[in-house]
């Protein structure tokens, strides 16, 4: 987690985000994949709405985690839950859900604290180090963004349909991006390919 955040912080800095912008994003967004997605868009001068909508779509998977966690937090004050909600993240969810069903709320919260702390610390270290490299393209660092996205997808591909969804989304996005300026190919291809996949594929057991 720390290393992942360090990489993000370094890349964000090279993409021209200031230290303050990097820290703020880690504190109030705190969603690694979408932050990786947002940085090259912000660097390319994408309009705020495009970045925000793309962030929303990338993070829609949180609905799945929140719904699975909800029964574990029965009896917690709602005010706490409003705060705890901000801590929902892939790593803590995966750890807590793998241990018990419904997940242990206190184990989940402990993991959230650890993830949150190492995420912010890692991003800060990365941001400081990233400020030292002057020509990122020379070191291939601009390629780190697509590389992270592809690696994140590759480890999640399980069923044959998963491959079809990922490949179909890539082709559709290419076709749209070639003809239509802007960044909408990401959201459109993402929603269309995943929606078709969900319609065609056999739903799986929870």
């Amino acid at each position: 987690m720390f290393v992942y955040a360090t990489v993000w912080g370094g890349l964000a800095r090279q993409a021209g985000l200031s230290l303050g912008e990097i820290v703020l994003m880690c504190l109030i967004v705190t969603a690694g994949a979408s932050q990786f997605v947002a940085v090259p868009m912000i660097a390319a001068g994408a309009p705020p709405l495009a970045v925000i909508v793309t962030t929303y779509v990338v993070n829609m998977r949180h609905y799945l985690m929140a719904a699975t966690l909800a029964p574990a937090f029965r009896g917690f004050p709602r005010r706490w839950l409003a705060l705890i909600a901000h801590g929902v993240n892939d790593e803590s969810f995966a750890l807590a859900a793998a241990r018990r069903n419904p997940p242990d709320p206190w184990f989940f919260l402990g993991s959230v604290a650890a993830v949150y702390g190492s995420f912010i610390a890692g991003a800060l270290v990365g941001a400081v180090l990233g400020g030292l490299v002057s020509d990122p393209a020379r070191y291939g660092l601009d390629f780190a963004f697509p590389a992270v996205f592809l690696a994140l997808v590759a480890v999640q591909l399980k069923r044959r349909g998963d491959w079809a969804v990922a490949g179909g989304a890539a082709l559709l996005a290419l076709a749209i991006a070639w003809r239509v300026p802007g960044n909408w190919h990401i959201v459109i291809a993402g929603l269309v390919a995943s929606g078709l996949g969900a319609l065609v594929m056999q739903p799986e057991d929870p």
């Binding site: 994949a33 793309t54 989304a169 929603l191 995943s194 799986e204």
Partner: peptide
């Protein structure tokens, strides 16, 4: 299933172009 597939579609849609 749809919520699980969304990132699998969005990330290549971003990376490949």
């Amino acid at each position: 299933l749809w919520l699980r597939l969304i990132p699998l579609a969005v990330l290549p849609a971003l990376a490949i172009p």
